[in-house]
């Protein structure tokens, strides 16, 4: 009897221990799920740059309070997304290129910090790249290719035409499949929006997607292990 109890307690203990370990980890799901907060050197507001150009307060004195976002095409900054594995961080030069002519926010703390990277402090360390941390860091045995997804879901499905109206709805929609709604309030660079687990990827790969703009022909995503696993 003692022996039986001892074994049961031991097993139960082990399950609790491993279970509590598992509970701290993200589970496989398909819904929005925030990742841990990542402390970035600059709290970059995605919503301000890519968000919809809706009017908040047309009479506001501060121009930054007039609109929610600038509706910049995601690929203006993440220019490598359509031709490379990675979407890439815009070079510092690109940030400065715009911001040196946007006087209204020049003194904002985040922008001041940005210019510190560009100009350096006391004439030293000029043009230092911003040390952004990876928020979507897949395990080393997984391969993900931005180019393929952008080409398929943005260019092939004709979302470019959708953007001709002047907005960035098409590309924002495509990026949001994996990165969440960037236009959402308080969308910064600090948190992952989706689980990005294998089950989550496979969930989408098992569905039929249109292969062209007409949407009549559909195909599933590749399902071969070696497509993603190295």
């Amino acid at each position: 009897m003692h022996r039986f109890l001892r074994l049961t307690i031991l097993l139960a203990g082990m399950f609790v221990a491993t279970g509590s370990h598992a509970a701290g980890q993200p589970f496989t799901g398909t819904e929005d799920q925030l990742g841990p907060e990542v402390p970035q050197p600059i709290e970059f507001p995605h919503n301000r740059h890519a968000g919809k150009g809706e009017v908040i307060d047309s009479g506001a004195q501060d121009p930054t309070q007039k609109y929610v976002g600038m509706e910049i095409n995601c690929m203006y900054c993440h220019t490598y997304a359509r031709r490379s594995m990675v979407s890439g961080i815009p070079p510092l030069r690109k940030c400065i290129g715009c911001h040196q002519s946007i006087e209204s926010v020049r003194e904002a703390p985040r922008i001041k910090k940005l210019f510190e990277y560009w100009e350096g402090t006391d004439g030293k360390d000029a043009q230092k790249p911003v040390p952004w941390l990876k928020v979507h860091d897949l395990p080393d045995f997984v391969r993900f290719n931005h180019e393929r997804h952008i080409q398929r879901f943005y260019f092939q499905q004709g979302k470019v035409t959708q953007d001709e109206a002047g907005g960035n709805d098409g590309i924002r929609e495509v990026c949001s499949y994996c990165h969440g709604d960037i236009a959402a309030k308080n969308a910064t660079v600090a948190r992952r929006q989706k689980p990005i687990t294998m089950g989550w990827c496979a969930n989408c790969h098992q569905k039929d997607h249109a292969v062209d703009a007409t949407g009549t022909e559909t195909a599933r995503g590749p399902n071969d292990c070696f497509t993603c696993h190295k």
Partner: peptide, 10 residues
């Protein structure tokens, strides 16, 4: 998340 740096250029 946040364990590595992104390739970032100036």
């Amino acid at each position: 998340d946040g364990a590595e740096f992104v390739t970032s250029y100036s």
